[in-house]
């Protein structure tokens, strides 16, 4: 088991380099660079920047150097000093900009994940055990309804309802008085008060697919001979369900962590913009639009890392839960 983890960790090193390179290529792909966008923005307000000034800017940001040199500078800064570079647009080190947002993103993401599981798991089991019953159709309909409603629409409706009926402001993750305040218990409580809206919206969207996965897995397992064996032992139906088929059917559930983590960061984007949440999505969008390449690169890199970590995490959990994998 330990060997397995070590091996997987070692494999992550080349994978990370590969994705970091790809991330860098990706953010360089759009025509032009930050200076072009910058000039275009200035031009919109009738300010003309001449060529020498532009070249000066490029030299200052290191944008005139060959691509590979830029990449090496960037990656060595990250690896050696934890320096993600400077955001052109904010004129601040990238690391200062992203850490708090990443932390809040993780809070939103993991609460959504737990919420999704808490809803999808019992419903998935129920709809499988009572296949084709009224309850099955009801929850399946509900799940698909959640899947079909665009999350931004749900966000708008919820905001409207909250403001009009309850007079509560549900945008953002903090009330105005805590927005810039340092961390305190009050701020944490305030966060929890605000958290339920985005979590509910995001979970509504994600449960349907998980319900279907859980239902299909359960249906596969329910008629296995070992379930009949357990029944022949005299176990009650409820105990037997939880101990045997659910235990086996849960494996694909764990695998979902791998792709759910990064998916939630980018998937939450529209909701985050609508609700003006201070998480990673909106900042990533902004940085991509203004070609703020170090900021965007840092985000893409972090998302790739999260994917790798998520996959590793789900593999380890899977091995812990399923002895067949552990002994392989």
């Amino acid at each position: 088991m330990l060997g397995f983890i070590i091996k997987r960790l070692l494999w992550m090193v080349p994978s990370l380099f590969a994705v970091s390179f790809l991330a860098f290529v990706l953010i360089q792909l759009p025509p032009g660079d930050y200076v072009t966008t910058y000039i275009a923005t200035l031009a919109a307000s009738n300010e003309i920047v001449d060529r020498t000034a532009a070249a000066e800017l490029r030299a200052r940001f290191g944008l005139d150097q060959p691509f590979i040199v830029q990449y090496l500078k960037w990656i060595s800064g990250i690896v050696l000093r934890g320096d993600f570079g400077l955001s052109f647009e904010w004129q601040q080190p990238v690391s200062e900009l992203i850490w708090e947002r990443m932390a809040l993103t993780l809070v939103v993401t993991s609460s959504t994940l737990l919420m999704t599981w808490a809803i999808a798991f019992p419903i998935g089991v129920f709809t499988a055990v009572r296949q084709y019953s009224i309850g099955d159709y009801f929850f399946t309909f509900l799940g698909f309804l959640g899947l079909a409603i665009p999350s931004f629409l749900l966000a708008l409706v919820l905001m409207y309802v909250a403001v009009v009926l309850f007079g509560a402001d549900v945008g953002g993750l903090f009330s105005p008085e805590y927005q810039t305040a340092p961390w305190s218990w009050g701020k944490v409580l305030n966060l929890i008060e605000h958290l339920w809206v985005p979590v509910l919206i995001l979970a509504t969207n994600g449960t349907a697919s998980l319900i279907r996965i859980m239902r299909a897995n359960m249906l596969d397992e329910l008629h296995r001979p070992y379930v009949t064996t357990a029944r022949a032992k005299g176990l009650s139906e409820f105990r037997l369900l939880l101990k045997y088929p659910v235990r086996v059917a849960i494996n694909p559930f764990i695998s979902t962590i791998g792709w759910l983590l990064p998916n939630l960061i980018s998937g939450a984007l529209i909701v985050a913009v609508v609700l003006s949440l201070p998480i990673a999505g909106p900042l990533l969008l902004q940085s991509l639009m203004s070609q703020d390449m170090y900021l965007a690169g840092a985000f893409v890199l972090l998302m790739c890392t999260l994917t790798l970590v998520g996959t590793l995490l789900s593999d380890i959990l899977l091995a812990l839960v399923d002895p067949r994998i552990r002994f392989d």
Binding site: P225, T229, R231, A232, K233, G234, L235, Y244, D322, R324
Partner: peptide, 20 residues
Amino acid sequence: RGAEIAMIFQEPMSSLSPVH
């Protein structure tokens, strides 16, 4: 079941749980 009348099955592999 299992106490007074017990049963054994054909496929001992699939008739026992693989994860217990």
